[in-house]
């Protein structure tokens, strides 16, 4: 069995894993980080989105073994202590979530978007989130949440 060492939300972990173990199941079942969700089985919905070495990836479409050596951030690790990430604030302030199931993946994808494009247009936000399905909000307030966060980040910089 492959042995992997990963740093997740700042903590290093080493485990022997089955070759077939998906990264999302490693995070949820082995590390107990259940904020990363599984919404489909075709890499389509984005609920499992995390950051792997700083980039948004779908953790349902990777093996845990592929992540060996990686630095991973999940939704649980996005805030700095008690201080929420601007996107977390934006989603709350703009009512960017309802049932909350897609939210962790949506926020992690949006964080990648803002890392690359700190001041996106509405269209760029919509295109940037094309890999994440939300069934509750109609995306209207998700777009506004990302805009809210972009504004906060700009004000802070």
């Amino acid at each position: 069995m492959p042995k992997i060492t990963v740093t997740v939300n700042g903590t290093q972990h080493t485990h022997e894993v089955e070759g077939r173990l998906l990264l999302v199941h490693y995070l949820r079942d082995v590390l107990g980080l259940t904020g990363t969700h599984v919404g489909c089985d075709t890499s389509s919905c984005g609920a499992c989105t995390i950051h792997l070495n700083g980039n948004a990836v779908k953790s349902c479409s990777m093996l845990a073994a592929q992540a060996d050596g990686a630095t991973i951030t999940t939704i649980e690790g996005l805030a700095s202590g008690d201080e929420l990430h601007p996107l977390q604030v934006g989603f709350k302030e703009e009512h960017g979530l309802q049932c909350g199931f897609c939210t962790p993946g949506m926020i992690m994808c949006a964080a990648d978007l803002l890392n690359r494009n700190p001041n996106p247009t509405e269209q760029e936000i919509r295109e940037g989130l094309e890999g994440n399905i939300c069934r509750c909000t109609g995306y209207h307030n998700i777009v506004r949440a990302v805009q809210h966060a972009a504004g906060q980040l700009e004000a802070a910089s």
Binding site: R28, D29, G32, L33, T34, G35, T36, H37, V38, T74, I75, E76, L78, A79, L84, Q88, F91, K92, E93, H95, L97, G100, F101, T103, P104, I107
Partner: peptide
């Protein structure tokens, strides 16, 4: 009033507790 949702905190921090999260 458009009071912000009190339930949001657990969802935006990945602490929601859905059935499959329970072991």
């Amino acid at each position: 009033k458009s009071v912000k949702r009190t339930e949001d905190k657990r969802f935006i921090t990945g602490k929601g507790r859905y059935t499959d999260d329970i072991n």
